[in-house]
Structure formats: structure tokens, C-alpha cells
Design a protein around this nucleic acid. Structure first.
Length: 428
RNA sequence: GGUGGGGUUCCCGAGUGGUCAAAGGGAACAGACUGUAAAUCUGUCGGCGACGCCUUCGGAGGUUCAAAUCCUCCCCCCACCA
């Protein structure tokens, strides 16, 4: 089975150009393929996981993945699929962000074994306007461009489309051409909103070099609730452990919607499909175990196995241990017998002994340790019965949390069902 | 550059002198129900030790007992015209 089939089977493919030729290409010798990543932040988030995983699949199949950081295009801003103009980045930001992104990609693809990272700032920033127009601008038809879906939304919007953004397609096409020349890269992959840009690159390669190139787009992954994957009320779920802790990351995956579990297992883990397909028949508590495995595998990929085990144990500690049958997704290396263990993956605050001796009103404390956004919010939460000490409901908003509540040298506070916070006393 | 229309609480969007912390919807949060799910129902949804006080309606001034609402200047967005 070649990569294309693997990707298809696992739900990565929305659309491809030249189905048959692409199939042949990928069945043959090593192919270089690239995906662009926007350096809008120093970290990637779950929304980029589909492209990342697809590169990983490529490498596993013996091909060469090229991760292109859009250091140059990031200076312009891609209008595709967006309703308003993006904040423009400075070159310095972009370079910093590119560093962070590389480190994260390295967990999924191996730069020591052929994978390449490039930054298009290297060839875009020095472009000469007139030369560029003469050499490449003439290959682009404005008539065609304005018909592209990627521009239509903005063309029809009140915001309009600025000229700088209109150029984006040319720059991305030029990237593809550059990588074609430099690496013989014949395949570009990207989100479905990139279709127009990818096709523009393929055209440019044909017109300018007479070469053939191909494209693959990924579907936009939405949850069954219809929301774009990877967004939560707290914002994006980041791959950077400083932004989204491994425990939170794990929890994000555990909270996957029922209907999404098999699909997400296929996309976001490397577990074999025949095992994943069996998950489709599960429901209820059994399905929850599959979610646990999904979370474990996804966390292992992003943060390493130790962190994943830590997150799993922390979850067991908070929500109760489980044991996972050995025939469920057997390829997973998840520890099958759950050991609940006090873990510091749970946010912890160290308190002065003196304050706890005196007692701190619950609403004040909940605000202070960020279980609530403000004292007012804490009052409301507690008033509605959503606050707990050691899993017992706090009955009044000004109940004083004190040493009386100390159990095993800690006090576990909880807001709602899932937000825990641990309080310990300073040693003195 | 001209003319007209706009900028409201997380988002959309009402509100054109007091009854406005500001309708309605969405999102979000809590409770019940559950499987750390979804759906549903109920409640909450600017801040504050809080039946009161304080800060919000693009920005800065002004009129008035009283302004999101009226006036002046400025900034930004949009449409049409040039």
C-alpha cells in the first residue's frame, strides 16, 4: 500500500490533482513534498496536526517531507478563507516563531533522516519587484485569479481585498517553483483553502519550467459539533507545553465527541486501521476507554511517552482509574492497568501556612488561583453549587478554606466538573 | 478629495436624553441527567465582601439635574462618486 492509499484510508485527503499520475508518482521512488506553515505564533496548534501527521506519514513511507515556514509570505498575509486582513508580522517575530515551530515538528518528523525545513523568507525577501513581474507575473491571469474561491469571499466582503494580499497567490506559487528547482519537489499539500494557491504553483511550474507537479488538499477538520478542530473556549490548543500543558492537552483529546473518535484515531495516531475500525462499534463507557487511548497516543506524539503517562495518571487521580482491555486498540502502548498516582500535572499553588490557619474565603481563593476569572464569577459559581473542596460541594460563597480541609497534606479544589486545583502548604 | 452610512458589553445585533450594566441570538459557565460525551431542561453571564457603589457603548472635549443616545473636533471602517 502506498502513502496515498494510506492517507486516503485515514481520512487525510479532500482533493488531489491528477489522481492517477500522483498515484504512480508516490508508488515509485522517493518524492519530495512540502507543506507551508504560517509563522503567526511561536507554536503550532492542534489545527496544524493534520498537515504535520501527513508529513510524518510521507516520511514513514520513505519520501522526503519539507516543512516550509512562511517567513516571507507571513510578511504578507494569506487571504484564503479569511474574512479580514491579517496582522502583519515583523521579520524578527517570524524568525523567532520559525525556531519554535521547528522544535515541535521535530517530534513528528525526523530532520536527521532527510526531512527538511526551509523558510521562504530566504528567497522572497530579496525579490526584485520588476524582475519578478517580468519573469513570473506574466504567467498569471488576473481573470483566473479573481475567480478563485480563495479570493471570492474577500472580494465579496465589505472588507475588500488589499493588493498586498492579492499577491499572496503569486508568492506561494513561486515557493513551489523554488522548491521544485531546489529539491525536485513535485508535491504540495495543504488545507482545502490552499487549493487555489497550490494549483497556481503547479501551473507556474508547468509554464516556467515545463515540469509536472501535483497537489493534495486536506479536508477542514471539524468536530461533530461543527466547530473547527482545535479551538476551545480557552482558545487554541497548542503543541507548546508551556501554552497548553500535557495534562490539558490530554484532557482535550479525552473530551472528544463520541462521533469523532474513530476518525480522530485515524488522523491523529499511527494505530493500525483494522484496530481503529473496531472502535466504531463501541459506545458508552467502552468508547470512553477508546478516548483515553486517543488522548494517550496524541499526547505521546506531541510530548513524549513520559508526559503522556503522567497526564494519564493525573486523569486517573482526578476522575478515577480504569483498566483498559488488552484487545482494545492493541497496538497502543498505553499502560493497561491504571495506577492512580498523585501527580503534579494538576495545577498546584503553594500557600502560606499562616493564611490557611486563618482561613481564606472560598470566592477569594477561587479567583486567586484562577479557577475563576473574577471574584464575582467565583461568587456565582459557588452560589450555583459549582465549587468543591475535596470533592464536597462548598455550600456558601464565603466558606473559609482552612487547615480543617487539609487531607494528606493537600487540599483539592474543583470548579465545575473538570477543573481541578491543588493547594499545598509551604514547608516552613 | 467629495457625498452618504457606520463603529454598542466575548461575537452577531437592538437601543436615538432619564425606567440602560444596556433587548434578542450565539458562544461560554454552573446545576440536573450521564460515560470526564452529545442532546435536553434550569440558572448565570462588566467589576466590587455587593438589595448599594464603581467602570463600560471608537477617542477627546462640551450641552444638560441627567448622555450609548444631543453638539464639536479627531481616529478607523464601508458604499457610491472623482
Amino acid at each position: 500500500m502506498n502513502v496515498l492509499q494510506t492517507l486516503k484510508e485515514r481520512g487525510f485527503i479532500e482533493q488531489t490533482t491528477h489522481d492517477q499520475e500522483l498515484e504512480d508518482l508516490l508508488s515509485g521512488e522517493q518524492v519530495s513534498c512540502y507543506i507551508g506553515f504560517d509563522p503567526t505564533a511561536s507554536s503550532l496548534h492542534v489545527g496544524s496536526l493534520v498537515p504535520i501527521m501527513s508529513l510524518a506519514h510521507m516520511q514513514r513511507a520513505g519520501h522526503r517531507p519539507i516543512a516550509l515556514v512562511g517567513g516571507g509570505t507571513g510578511l504578507v498575509g494569506d487571504p484564503s478563507g479569511k474574512t479580514e486582513m491579517r496582522q502583519l508580522l515583523t521579520l524578527e517575530d517570524v524568525n523567532n516563531n520559525a525556531e519554535g515551530i521547528r522544535a515541535q515538528l521535530a517530534r513528528f518528523i525526523d530532520f536527521d533522516k532527510g526531512a527538511v525545513q526551509e523558510n521562504n523568507a530566504n528567497w522572497l525577501v530579496g525579490l526584485k519587484y520588476i524582475e519578478f513581474l517580468r519573469d513570473f507575473g506574466r504567467h498569471f491571469s488576473v481573470n483566473r485569479m479573481i475567480k478563485a474561491e480563495s479570493y471570492r469571499m474577500r472580494l465579496e466582503s465589505e472588507e475588500g481585498l488589499s493588493f498586498i494580499e492579492f499577491n499572496y497567490m503569486l508568492l506561494q506559487a513561486y515557493d513551489f517553483l523554488h522548491l521544485f528547482n531546489a529539491y525536485g519537489c513535485q508535491l504540495q499539500m495543504g488545507g482545502s483553502d490552499q487549493w487555489g494557491n497550490i494549483v497556481a504553483g503547479i501551473d507556474l511550474i508547468r509554464r516556467a519550467k515545463g515540469g509536472s507537479a501535483y497537489g493534495i488538499t486536506f479536508p477542514l477538520i471539524t468536530t461533530s459539533a461543527g466547530i473547527k478542530m482545535g479551538k476551545t473556549h480557552k482558545g487554541a490548543v497548542w503543541l507548546d507545553p508551556d501554552r497548553t500543558s500535557p495534562y490539558e492537552y490530554f484532557q482535550f483529546w479525552v473530551n472528544t465527541h463520541d462521533d469523532d473518535v474513530p476518525r480522530f484515531l485515524a488522523l491523529f495516531t499511527f494505530l493500525p486501521m483494522e484496530q481503529i475500525n473496531r472502535v466504531k462499534d463501541l459506545d458508552g463507557a467502552e468508547l470512553n476507554l477508546a478516548k483515553t487511548i486517543l488522548a494517550f497516543e496524541a499526547t505521546t506524539l506531541a510530548h513524549g511517552r513520559d508526559q503522556a503517562v503522567g497526564a494519564l495518571e493525573a486523569a486517573y487521580n482526578m476522575f478515577g482509574a480504569r483498566s483498559i482491555p488488552s484487545d482494545l486498540l492493541a497496538a497502543s502502548s498505553i499502560p493497561r492497568e491504571g495506577a492512580a498516582k498523585a501527580e503534579d500535572s494538576v495545577p498546584t499553588t503553594v500557600m502560606d501556612l499562616a493564611r490557611l490557619e486563618e482561613g481564606v474565603p472560598a470566592f477569594e481563593l477561587f479567583d486567586e488561583i484562577d479557577l475563576c476569572a473574577s471574584r464575582g464569577a467565583a461568587r456565582r459559581l459557588l452560589g450555583q453549587g459549582g465549587g468543591y473542596v475535596n470533592n464536597e460541594r462548598i455550600e456558601s460563597f464565603d466558606y473559609k478554606i482552612s487547615l480543617v480541609d487539609m487531607k494528606d497534606n493537600e487540599i483539592i479544589l474543583r470548579a465545575g466538573k473538570k477543573n481541578y486545583h491543588r493547594l499545598v502548604v509551604s514547608e516552613k
